[in-house]
Design a protein around this nucleic acid. Structure first.
Lengths: 333, 333
DNA sequence: GGATCGTCCGAAAACCTTTTCGAATGCGTA
DNA sequence: TACGCATTCGAAAAGGTTTTCGGACGATCC
């Protein structure tokens, strides 16, 4: 199976290439009967137009680059999927590049993408902290998840403060009053922001944090277990725990279970990320905060399309997160 | 920042486009001094060649397609990463397409990729069962993880039978004699193959399966928990459990812990997949089988490159898996 | 001094498609 | 019959690069 060119189609249909092109592209200046002949010829040869040649003329490659830093991470994938299906697959294809967190590899990929004449670029960071801007480029760029440090760029991020607030709000609505917060690495803005949202909401209610402080540590189950033990020592009367990630929440659940403390009747637990393999299969299944990353990806694609159409934007847009209710939280009876 | 063309470079250097091209591509028929001038001009204009135009001439786009069916799944990502870094990023870029398990979407993507003149295609299935061949295409195709049903295609799969054998072998070497196997959906060839490998190795040793049968069920923690309870009922003396996935293994560990049965001193547990978020953070960390998927991706890229260079191959190649020893298994004292 | 040769460079074709513009045809009208 | 007009088609240029081939030039040799 080899590739037919438009010339082959034209020859088979007995017309010129120009006419063949117009016939296939729905241009009006071609008789219906002629068009029909061309279309049949194209089908017969299973012709498909060479997008490279088209791109050369139209100055549009119909491709975008997606530059990520953590493919194996769980954040870039949903964004990528959202972006992929916001661009109709017929119109735009996406080049995937993983820089593995390495700046020179990133530069390398960037060169390659520019040379491929991508029409735009989505940059997905590995963590929500801001990252260096790529600077001025001949094509539009949208930063997703991790914002650019240049406010002139377009950045799309999730609302971690709002997420922390939502989590605590949910616990309060469940009638909990002694709420603790166990979270990950304090060097992550995600940890700081979620904690801030939580504290804000507590303050509104006139509540103090159970345990007296935010338990910063690591994004791991082990830390969730360790922190929970310390917390139970310090405040045995705790009635809810907001975990900064689902991994941490798993550790929390594990220790509570071990201590024969019932979830949710004695202590409610809420996670963060809605990483479903962890959250949906725990005992009990975990109430958590979903980051809406697919949506973030879709919007990134839309913003990029708009910019490519000549409607640029700038600044950081923050997108709301979503509460996913499962069985690890419930109203106090 | 706009894009300079080769003509601009040539003009600035005071040579013809032909010479400029040769100078930049290291062709010998150009004086060193001239070449130098051209190179400087190119740098000054930050020229980067238009790959579309190059592809038009060389009949090589320098791109490959990666057609997957489960991006969110954990299998395609490592393969993708392996493939991505086996193709040097300077040479080849990869188009990522997720068909979401939908045949017509797959056809759609395929059309788009062919129209983009990709030089080759890697097809990554969602599960190790064989999948329909894409049929005759003008470019080489490599099937990874899920083999094609056409033996004329190139397929690369992991050795599930060997994995089952390795797992049981490891347990036997730990001195275990009453080994059970809890695994997932019997409709998956992965479940069948792993079980077969396990049974083969047991038979060699003259051992029977503890519990009397393979516990097929679902790929979930919940099933791991349920099956373990039934197993403990039927054979309280079991001293090792081979779980068909890390998720199942987590469920197994959970129930053993609840029953105050120590792992590994009383019962050893081994998982499958080395899904690190589950395996590395469990209590105790899980010995498991790694599928070497990055390697599979790298080899897929190599096979594809070879085929693109005119060295095609065919048939199903099976790749070995790797035992990852952590703390959930240990020799009986 | 003329022939031969090697070195370096440029003109032009090629890749495949789109688009512009002019030509041809047929028709109706004066 | 001559003209204008609408319709349909084709020739050709354009997009950016690579590659072939021939030309110019200086040097070497008899």
């Amino acid at each position: 199976m080899s590739r037919a060119t438009l010339r082959d189609v034209a020859k088979l249909a007995g017309v010129s290439v120009a006419t063949a092109s117009k016939a296939l592209n729905g241009q009006p200046q071609v008789r219906a009967e002629t068009r029909e002949r061309v279309v049949r010829a194209a089908e017969q040869l299973s012709f498909s137009p060479n997008t490279l040649a088209q791109g050369l003329i139209t100055q549009r490659s119909g491709t975008v680059g997606l530059l990520t830093s953590d493919l194996e991470g769980r954040f870039s994938i949903p964004i990528l999927m959202g972006a992929e299906d916001a661009f109709g697959s017929d119109q735009t294809s996406v080049f995937l590049c993983d820089a593995r967190g390495d700046t020179i590899r990133e530069k390398h990929h960037l060169r390659a993408l520019l040379s491929r004449r991508v029409d735009g670029l989505i940059v997905v960071g590995a963590r929500p902290d801001s990252r260096p801007s790529l600077g001025e480029l001949p094509i539009p760029v949208v930063y997703a998840y991790a914002p650019s440090d240049d406010p002139g760029d377009i950045s799309l991020v999730t609302d971690n403060v709002g997420g922390g607030r939502t989590a605590v709000d949910h616990l309060i609505r469940c009638g909990r009053r002694r709420i603790a917060h166990i979270t990950g690495d304090p060097g992550y803005s995600a940890a700081q922001d979620r904690a801030r949202g939580a504290l804000d909401r507590l303050a509104e209610e006139g509540l103090e944090l159970s345990g007296g402080e935010v338990w910063f540590g690591m994004w791991s189950e082990a830390w969730g277990r360790g922190a929970t033990r310390m917390l139970l020592d310090r405040d045995p009367g705790v009635d809810a725990i907001f975990a900064g990630s689902d991994e941490i929440a798993r550790g929390v659940l594990d220790v509570l279970h071990e201590e024969r403390i019932d979830v949710p009747s004695q202590v409610a637990v809420i996670g963060f990320d809605n990483w479903s393999v962890l959250a949906a299969n725990s005992r009990p299944p975990l109430t958590t905060i979903d980051l809406n990353l697919e949506q973030l990806g879709r919007i990134a694609a839309q913003r990029l399309s708009a910019a490519m159409e000549g409607h640029p934007a700038s600044g950081v847009e923050t997108f709301p997160v979503r509460l996913i209710t499962r069985e690890s939280t419930a109203p106090l009876r």
